[in-house]
Design a protein around this nucleic acid. Structure first.
Lengths: 163, 163
DNA sequence: GATGGATCGTTGCGCGCGCAACATCCACTC
DNA sequence: GAGTGGATGTTGCGCGCGCAACGATCCATC
């Protein structure tokens, strides 16, 4: 396990701003998600459920197409199918057939689902406050969001295979 | 499903810098991880394997205690046990008993494992370049890393239960 | 030396997700 | 109208992870 000069150079390349940035993104994500999960009261919805409910609540009409919702959730459509299965079984959401496209479905917030978001929102915001916002100045929080959005949009625009 | 004035106010609270920042963090993370995964050549190691190998390669002595490695990977020790099982089965890593603490184990990079990191590094850096770094100015990349690190450290310092 | 609590790593178990394949349906062409 | 390529959502399947429980070990205290 001797470190040759060549491998030392190559190893130094691993201390790289890009590697560091990616590592920090993963670590921050994991740390935040698990911390938020541990803070969930037994009445609250799990984080992915909240993701669905919040997105629906923010949408005019409180409904989104399955595929569109999957895109917004950055997950596969099959993953979303199962997720909506569970949230629907809990009564927070309903699947509605789409008149103008008979393949399609709307995921629609039920009144009970709306109650759940509204009830969970204050606690969720307080958790985000304590875990996220309080670590940064308001300006920095906006900067962080902006930088992340730029990366996200850029990744979405890059073809998935090498080309 | 009428929108009452009260719920309209509460719904407006969901368009919140904190919610937005958290959503962006999750979306960017997912987008980046899946994009990186799709770029993996058949010879490359999966992203979590690379995480292990890179961390070991950067460590003097090329070895880390299991618990410490789990902390750095932001995952549970049980998750790491299975992960190391797989990486060890591939021959990239070895478990070594710890002389000064007979409960403990070192995860140690094998020469073959070192070769794997060194071989994968250029492609990985190129991928990170294309997906991450090229979306931002170098300064912004550093800023992003710094902001993320602040959030990560802050989350780690907050007690897990409400108090 | 004995004892109680804390730490280390592993295991059984269940869950949530992505991939590939599929049936269904749309849009466009001939 | 028949045919073709693409889109939509669901399913079978396997995998990777976290939680809780466990044995082994360390350490502090008596």
């Amino acid at each position: 396990m001797a470190v040759t000069p060549e491998s030392a150079v190559a190893l130094a390349a691993l201390d790289d701003p890009r590697v560091e940035a990616f590592g920090m993104l993963v670590e921050t994500h994991n740390e935040l998600v698990t911390a938020l999960t541990k803070r969930l009261g037994s009445t609250d919805a799990p984080i992915p459920w909240l993701g669905v409910l919040i997105r629906l609540a923010r949408t005019p009409g409180h409904r989104l197409r399955m595929t569109e919702l999957a895109r917004e959730m950055t997950m596969s459509t099959s993953g979303l199918t199962r997720l909506i299965d569970r949230v629907e079984a809990a009564g927070h959401v309903e699947r509605e057939r789409c008149p103008e496209d008979r393949r399609g479905l709307w995921a629609a917030l039920t009144p009970a689902g709306l109650d759940v978001v509204l009830a969970a929102a204050p606690g969720h915001l307080a958790d985000l406050d304590e875990l996220l916002a309080s670590a940064l100045d308001p300006d920095d929080l906006v900067t962080l969001t902006d930088l992340l959005r730029r990366v996200r949009d850029h990744v979405r625009g890059v073809p998935s295979a090498a080309g």
